[in-house]
Every structure is written in C-alpha cells, then in structure tokens.
Design a protein around this nucleic acid. Structure first.
Length: 911
RNA sequence: GGGCGGUUAGCUCAGUGGUAGAGCACUACGUUGACAUCGUAGGGGUCACAAGUUCGAACCUUGUACCGCCCACCA
C-alpha cells in the first residue's frame, strides 16, 4: 500500500543512484536510431548552482528525457569551463588567506599547480548539485575545457587561424582591467551610469595668440569676447597629462582662426596643436575637444589621422607613469606614481590654482566597468592577439539567414545579426596564468613562431635561436567556442563526431548569444564546415519575485537546492518548465513551486486510489479500441490521445509551458476530477466484466500519465512506476527508458465524448444551481428531468448511480412538464428540475435566473448583430456563420426555458 | 544615439484573427472511504490609449504614453 505522500527526500537520491548505476544516462548507441545531442553550456568550474542553471538544465533535461523515450540515440554532454579570471581569482584569494604569497612570488608553475589542485578538490561542485535536480547527462563523458583533448583542439585552432591570417597581433587600445591587470574583450565591459562631472579646462594659447569667441552678455545678447585660451571638457581630467592635441570641427567658425596654432598644456608645459577634425562636435561642450590618443578610443582614431604621438600616462594598475614615459610626457615628479584618482584631484587642484578651471559641471556620466572586477576600465595601449571576427562572421550570418541554424524564438535572429554586422576584432589574449597558453614563441629579434608544440616552433626557427614563449593565455570563451565539437573528439575524426555533430539544439539565455553562441557559430563553421547546432533555443532569464535580476551581490538570489529540499526537485522542475514561455523573463515564486509539489501529491494519491482498487494491471490488448466497451473508458482513452498529442507537440516546439499545462490539466482536471470519480460506481458495482475493463483502462491511463509527465517530474513518476509494479507483475526496466506514447486519432470516440460530456455537463449544472442557491452539500435533493427523449433516458439510466453520487441527488424522476416549485437548469432540450420545496428562497432564485437571462440576452443580441450584418454572412467562412447560427438557436432555447422557469416561480410566489 | 521587448483578473503571467484563460490570492460551503499538500461552487477584466485594416481585432498596421532590457567611442 502506498503511503499518503511521496517522500521525495528519501526517494530522490536513491532513484538517481539507481538510474546512474544502471547506466540509464548513456546513449543507446543505436546506430539505426536518429541521433540527438545537446552539449551543456559548461558552468564555471568555480560555480555553484543558481536558478539560471536550474532553468537551463531542466529544459535540456526535458528535451533529453523526451527524445530518449522516443527512442533516439541521445547524448547529453556534460562538463565545466575553466573560467580563467574567476578561477584565478578564487585561488589567489585562497593564497592570500593562507599567508601573503601572491601568485607572482609563487611563480607561474607553482601557481598553476595550486589551481589544478584546487580544481581537483573543490572545483566542479556544481555538477554534484546538478544531480539533485535529476538531470540526466552522460556523466561518464564529463569534459573540462582545459583537459588534454580540448587543449589540443584549442591549440590546433589557434595555429590554423594564425596561419590563415585570421588571428593576428596588434598594438592598439584595449579595454584594460587595472584590477586583474589584463586586457578584456568589449563584451566583458559593462557601461554604467554613475555620478561624475565634466571639468571644463582652459588651455592657454601659445605664442600670445588670441581670437574672438562668441558669448552671451549679461542681458543674454550675443557678444564677442577676446580669448587667449580654449575650453575643453573632460570627465577624466588626469588624462590631460597625455594630451597630444586639441581638436575642433573644420567648419566651426568659432575656432577657424586658431586651427594650426598651439596651446601650452598646463602642468606639463608641452605645446600641442589645435587640429581640425570632424570628430569634434560643435554642439557638444565648447565644441573643442582634448585629444589623448593613448587613453581614448576616439582620440586614438583622431591621432591616427593627424599623426599624433600616443603618449601613455598610465601603468598597468592605472597609476601615473614614471621614468622614461613620464619624461616623454613631461609629467612632473609629484604626479608620478599617483593613483589615477589621486592624480585627477591633483590635476583639478592645479587648474583651479592657476585660474584655468573654467567650471565644474556635476552630472551623471557613463563609465565602463569590468564585469568581473567591478573597477573602471581604462583604454590602454598594448600588444594583444585578435581574431578577425569580421571575416569569420560572414559564414556565421549566412548559416542563420539560410536556416541551417534556427533561433527559437525567431526574434533573436535580429539580435544576432545586429551584433554580427557590427562585430569588432575579438581580443583573445589575457594577461593571466590560468588558461590555454598562447602557442607562440618569439626569437630574440622579435620574430614570431606559431606552432602546436615548442618542438615545432623550434623547427621553424632553425638551430641556435633562443625561443621565449608568449606569456599570455586565451580568453576563456575561445575554448568554449569549440565546445560543441571539441567534446566529441575533434580534431580526430571520431565516431562521436560522425554521429552527434551537428548538435540538435543549444539551450541558453539571451545574455550569452554574443559571448558564446555567435562564437560557436564562427568556429564551428570554420573548422567543421557545418553549423554546430540546428536550433538555438533562447530561454528567459530568472528574476526574483520583484522582477530583479538575481545576483549574489544584490542578495536576492534564491538557492535552487533549498527549494529542492523543501518541495522536491520535481516541483522546482515543473515550475521551471511551466514558466518557460518564450521570450519572457520568469519571476520565481516560491508559492508556485509549492503548488507543483501539491500537484505531485495529487498524482501520488490518484495512484494510491488506483492501487487500492486494483487498477494496476494491463496488457497491450486491453486498451485496443475493440476490447473496450464502457463509454467512460472509451472517453478517457480519447482524452489520453489528445493529451499525448498536446504534450508531444509542446515539447517538439519548445513550448515547455504548453506541454506542462497540458499534462497538468489532464492529470488533475480530467483524470482525477472526472474520470476517477466517474468510475467509482463501476469499481464498486456488480458488473464484473465492466469492473475488470475499467481497472485495466484506469491502470493504463495512469501509466500513460507517468510517461507523459516523466520528462518534467522524473522522480515521482519513476517512483510510482516502480511501486505500482510491486502490486502487479514486474514490468521490467525504468520508466525513464520506457517508450514515449503515440496514439492515432482513432482512439478518440466521438460518441463516447458526446455521452460522457453530457454527463459531466449535467452534473456541473446541478452543482452550479446548488451552489448558487446555497444548498448544503450534505442535503440530497430529488431531481426531475423534463423533456427527455429515449437517448437521454438511457443515459440517465446508465449513469444514475454516479449522477446521484456526484451531484448529491436523492432520486431521479422523469416528467413531461417541469414541475411547479422547482429550481431549473437547462441543458439543450432538457430541463433539470430540482425539487427544493421548503429549501429554496424564491427571491434568490428569481435573481439567479434573472442574471442568467440577462447574460443570454446579451449573447443573443451580439449574435443577432453579427448575423444581421450581410457583410458577415457573405464574407465570413461558412462554418463560422453556421456556428453562430447554432449558438443563437441554443441560446434562444435556453432563454425560453429559463424565462418559463422564472414565470412559474413568480406565479408560485403570488399563489 | 541605435535596437529589442512589455502594458490582459488583486498578484504573477499564458493566449497571434472568430464565445477572454491559468496558477495563486479572495468569498461561501464541505472530515462525500485516493488526496485538507483536498473537494464543490462563486466573485473579479471596455485585454494601456488613439486611429486604421477587416464581415470580425487582445491578436495585424500606424501613432501616443508609460515601463524594462541590450548595444554604442565615457566633451
């Protein structure tokens, strides 16, 4: 006998271990079957499971379990990402805790050893957490972006791209993170609005030059002023130490006179030219802009056009330079070594002191921050390695345009195209130690040798050349970009590559389209000549209950494992699927998760009922249409067919919410609310043949539910599958490997639908009337049916017991006329009359009828209007017109009967 | 500055041309032999606004308002 509730806490780990031990997660390897492969977006090896993973992994598992049950040869490839910066940060923090060994004093080799050790013992905890969710990747194939095979793929890709000219070294401005002291890519920079200021600085003109500058006088009239200075504005005053020019627009009349003249930069005393460049926008600020080529992306371009010096003023930690560089810029000693913000204050103070601070304008400014470090990013002039993304983007766009890869929802194609069309060179070198080291060696003369191994580099270099390897490592996303094929054994021509590539679908959130999806497309197409995946399913972002993005720093992050502990993995999973409507955010609500826990309990108890009534056995032949005679059973079989089609279609279309809603509704509102109630009289009745049939069909239906629900709620369904078998013959094997149901439309029996629909409708009508009139549920009332024909009479006869039971009826009688003093409900030709003498409040009943009559009149008026419109009758499809006609007939019939009922009541009242 | 999306019941959200839906919340009643993690019934919406297309619009078009998000070289 099943217990009263599903003890998920006891069952989940046991079931999971059983699956894993039995090898259920491994691909069938069936070469005749269609292959279906998903690679998991590899979580950071430092990561802990958060709600985003819970959603992402649940949806993948739904797909995986579904396709596995459909008999495909399914591979879900798991693994983790080495996450360069994040991991290095964790280990450096650990080092700091232990003593003050920083990585530099430790040395590269020893440090890396530490990171690997950390990875072995503490890394990848997320994968164990993942098991709690019940996900079913093939753990035996777990990969790591820095394991041997994947590292070889990375090296090979680098060398090939280098040889093809698609990877190159360039000295230009990069986004420099002064905290981590590394370059980062554009995508890792986050623009944020912060409180700041524009400092309007006066640069004195050299050589005694003056010019006339338009101003407003005290009365607000236009006037001219003779100036011996030019005003520039900046949000970063300290950069003036590296200024190389002042630019004005060539057409700007205000400054025409001084183009080609010079200013003397305060503090450093350098002469720099006033140049004409279209970059200067006359409408912004004073119209004149200071040009710092080494510290601003725009200024860099201006500098290129005018041959300006690139004067670097910052060190790797964003302090003011000293030494040779300081001399070049003529930076005074008291500025050298100052942090950028201290230098800023000092620069501003110096301007103020010398009366050259025109004004300070406090305002919000946009500033770039490192997404990991949270510090302000500096554009900094360095040598870095770049991927020619512009070239590689072309085939990647083409593949989406011609449909080889499809975005779901489709609208994300636009996001993809927009970014791809404006793609910039991808900076891939990082000044870190943890990662794939760049396979490039330099000779003493600066010659470059790019090769897969040092030995090969040596061969290229020839004897006697001393080689030094590039210090830098690659952006983490460089190796992630190869994930769909590097995990399958590429560059070897493996059987796995043959079978599982391209992947069926990539499941991810939209914030990763640029970081990852776009780059996988580029790399995949370039190296395999095939798209990496057929579909890209973009799901929502998980937000908290207030609609805020969850993050550790905000403190609003909910721990998925806490919810699993409280409500079970099934409840959380079902919640995720039910909320996964396309193109939306999902707000996580604990209450809703609780609701799905209740759903699991409901199912459990339905199974308990089946078991108590010996509804556990069935064989294939038992549910063949010809062997089932009871309309109730024929009806539920049709409902199963419909639910199966809906769930299947929902998952196929990535409409997880629709699939979840379909199985939820069928289980609770059809199977539990109606079918199980309707079969109770049969199960308790005398007709042994009907009873036997019903037991089998009920058992079968329950099994079908377990299968359809399994991808969403694997634990409770697997547990019931196993438990129910204990009461019948063992069915052998796990539910998760059972076959996904398919039913043809023939299973739907229109006559049974009609008949059972009528019974349900009738019971609902009686219940409705009782509820409206506040008839106590305990009191049974006599029912008289007026106007019934033979068909109705036979139905009533057949279902007499259950109508009486479910509608709380004492007796059912038949009559020609609606009895006086009864309360009426109308069902087509028939009037249901409840004999409620003494119980009913006539006034209340008149009100109730009035309300319904009012509703009907409104409905009829609406239909009349439509049908009275010749354009409607002429142009609308005939079936729609006919449907409206039918609706009118039905409504009118109903109206007449209800009006009659009201009339009789008022007569009774008067009498 | 460019782009994308949202506005539907008290709340959170489904619903893409033909009778407005779900879950939760709310109200009333209820220990009916599976289930109170439950049952039965009920209340509650001019689908942001305006104009258009259409026989017909929550749904298509255009505009307006408000709210988000993403991208962008930070005078």
């Amino acid at each position: 006998m099943l217990e009263q509730h599903f003890d998920f806490q006891a069952a989940e780990r046991r079931i999971y271990a059983d699956w894993e031990n039995a090898g259920c997660f491994k691909p069938s390897g069936e070469t005749s079957a269609q292959a279906y492969c998903i690679v998991i977006p590899p979580p950071n090896v430092t990561g802990v499971l958060h709600m985003g993973h819970a959603l992402n992994h649940t949806l993948q598992d739904v797909l995986i379990r579904f396709e596995r049950m459909r008999g495909k040869n399914v591979l879900w490839q798991p693994g983790t990402d080495h996450a360069g910066i994040a991991t290095q940060m964790v280990v450096e923090r650990e080092l700091a805790k232990e003593g003050n060994l920083d990585r530099r004093t430790l040395g590269r080799e020893a440090f890396l050893e530490r990171v690997w050790k950390w990875k072995e013992y503490s890394g990848g905890a997320i994968l164990d957490q993942d098991r709690r969710l019940g996900v079913s990747p093939d753990w035996s194939r777990e990969r790591f972006t820095m394991d041997e095979g994947l590292s070889r793929a990375v090296t090979k890709v680098f060398v090939e791209l280098y040889n093809q000219g698609l990877i190159y070294r360039d000295k230009k401005l990069v986004n420099w993170d002064p905290h981590f002291q590394t370059a980062i890519s554009d995508l890792e920079v986050e623009a944020k609005e912060v409180d700041g200021a524009y400092w309007h600085l006066r640069y004195p003109l050299a050589d005694g030059v003056t010019y006339e500058h338009p101003v407003k006088d005290e009365d607000g009239n236009d006037a001219m002023e003779t100036r011996d200075y030019i005003v520039v504005a900046t949000s970063r005053p300290e950069t003036m130490l590296g200024d190389a020019a002042v630019a004005v627009h060539p057409d700007d009349e205000r400054y025409k006179a001084i183009v080609g003249k010079h200013v003397v930069l305060p503090i450093v005393g350098r002469r720099v030219a006033v140049v004409a460049d279209i970059y200067a926008d006359p409408a912004k600020g004073s119209g004149a802009v200071k040009i710092t080529p080494a510290h601003d992306f725009n200024d860099f371009q201006v500098g290129e056009r005018h041959g300006l010096a690139r004067l670097n003023i910052l060190t790797a930690v964003a302090a003011i330079v000293g030494g040779e560089e300081a001399r070049t810029c003529a930076i005074p000693a008291e500025y050298q070594g100052l942090d950028r913000y201290a230098a800023r204050e000092k620069v501003v103070a110096a301007f103020e002191e010398s009366g050259l601070l025109d004004r300070v304008e406090k305002r919000k400014i946009e500033q770039p921050f490192g997404d990991r470090s949270g510090v302000v990013i500096e554009p900094w002039l360095t040598d870095q390695w770049y991927v020619d993304a512009k070239t590689m983007a072309v085939p990647a766009m083409e593949a989406v345009r011609d449909g080889r890869t499809r975005f779901v929802p489709e609208s994300y194609e636009k996001t993809y195209f927009q970014w791809m069309e404006n793609i910039q060179p991808w900076c891939i070198s990082r000044q870190l130690w943890w990662g794939h080291r760049i396979p490039v060696w330099y000779g003493a003369d600066g010659s470059v040798f790019c090769a897969e191994t040092e030995a090969e580099a040596r061969l290229q270099a020839g004897p006697g050349v001393v080689l030094t390897r590039d210090e830098d490592v690659l952006d983490t996303w460089f190796s992630s970009a190869l994930w769909p094929f590097s995990t399958l054994g590429w560059p070897e021509k493996t059987a796995d590559m043959e079978m599982y590539y391209p992947n069926a679908v990539l499941v991810t959130a939209f914030d990763i389209i640029f970081f990852w999806v776009a780059r996988m497309m580029m790399m995949g197409l370039h190296f395999t000549k095939e798209v990496p995946f057929r579909d890209v399913y973009i799901h929502a972002l998980v937000l908290d209950e207030k609609g805020q993005k969850m993050s550790k720093s905000k403190g609003n992050a909910m721990d998925p494992l806490e919810l699993v502990d409280e409500f079970g993995a099934d409840a959380l999973r079902f919640n995720m699927a039910a909320m996964a409507a396309q193109g939306r955010n999902v707000r996580l609500s604990k209450q809703r998760v609780e609701g799905y826990r209740n759903f699991a309990t409901k199912l459990w108890n339905a199974a308990r009922f089946c078991q108590m009534n010996e509804c556990v056995l069935w064989e294939a032949g038992d549910v063949a249409s010809g062997n089932v005679s009871q309309p109730i059973n024929r009806w539920i079989m049709g409902e199963v067919a419909r639910a199966t089609a809906a769930v299947t279609k929902g998952i196929e279309d990535y409409r997880f919410n629709e699939a979840a809603a379909a199985i939820y509704r069928f289980t609770w509102n059809v199977f539990c609310d109606w079918y199980l109630e309707l079969i109770k009289p049969l199960l308790n009745g005398e007709d042994e043949e009907a009873k036997a049939e019903t037991r089998k069909v009920a058992a079968w239906t329950l099994d079908e539910i377990l299968k359809l629900l399994h991808p969403f709620m694997p634990f409770v369904t697997e547990e019931l599958w196993g438990k129910l078998a204990e009461f019948g013959p063992a069915r052998g094997g796990f539910l998760m490997l059972a076959q996904w149901p398919t039913h043809d439309a023939e299973m739907i029996d229109a006559a049974a639908d009609e008949e059972i629909g009528w019974v349900i409708d009738m019971i609902s009508q009686v219940r409705g009337v009782r509820g409206d009139l506040n008839v106590p549920p305990g009191s049974k009332v006599p029912l008289v049916i007026a106007g019934a024909d033979a068909v109705i009479w036979r139905r009533v006869d057949r279902y007499r017991d259950l109508i009486m039971r479910l509608a709380r009826i004492e007796s059912i009688g038949m009559a020609e006329q609606v009895p006086r003093g009864s309360v009426n409900a109308v069902m087509g030709e028939v009037t249901l009359a409840l004999r409620l003498e003494g119980v009913i409040d006539i006034a209340a009943e008149v009100t109730r009828l009035g309300k319904e009559i009012g509703k009907l009149e409104g409905e009829i008026a609406g239909i009349e209007k439509k049908l009275g419109n010749p354009a409607f009758v002429e142009k609308a499809p005939p079936e729609i017109v006919e449907e409206q006609g039918q609706r009118r007939t039905e409504a009118e019939l109903r109206l007449a009967k209800l009006t009659g009922a009201r009339l009789r009541l008022s007569e009774l009242d008067e009498g």
